[in-house]
């Protein structure tokens, strides 16, 4: 591992999120329990998917880039329901 000079929390702290009330991505942890790859855990650039001890997935929608990587890598049909946050909410990039 290369030390990148910044902790992940500090890295995410550089991004503005206007958090909406409604979770725009919902994970069905019951389906995740049967998933062997759990590609979302490593692929999500915002590191929002955390495996739980019972084999499920804990998901935090608040710091989501809305990029779509999670549902593209997800093998399990129906595990992820993916929409955009309500208008005006979610990530706000300033230097995209």
């Amino acid at each position: 591992m290369t030390w990148d000079g910044i902790s992940f929390e500090d890295r995410m702290e550089t991004v503005e999120f206007r958090v909406g009330e409604r979770p725009h991505i919902v994970v069905d942890s019951d389906i995740c329990r049967s998933c062997t790859t759990k590609a979302c855990v490593t692929a999500c650039p915002a590191n929002l998917f955390a495996p739980t001890s019972d084999g499920g997935i804990l998901f935090n929608y608040e710091q989501c880039f809305e990029c779509g990587t999670c549902y593209q890598v997800c093998d399990s049909d129906g595990a992820l329901s993916w929409t955009y946050p309500d208008g005006g909410h979610g990530v706000v990039f300033r230097s995209g």
Partner: peptide
């Protein structure tokens, strides 16, 4: 780091 971002 001023901003971190990702996009497909």
């Amino acid at each position: 780091v001023k901003e971190y971002s990702a996009h497909l």
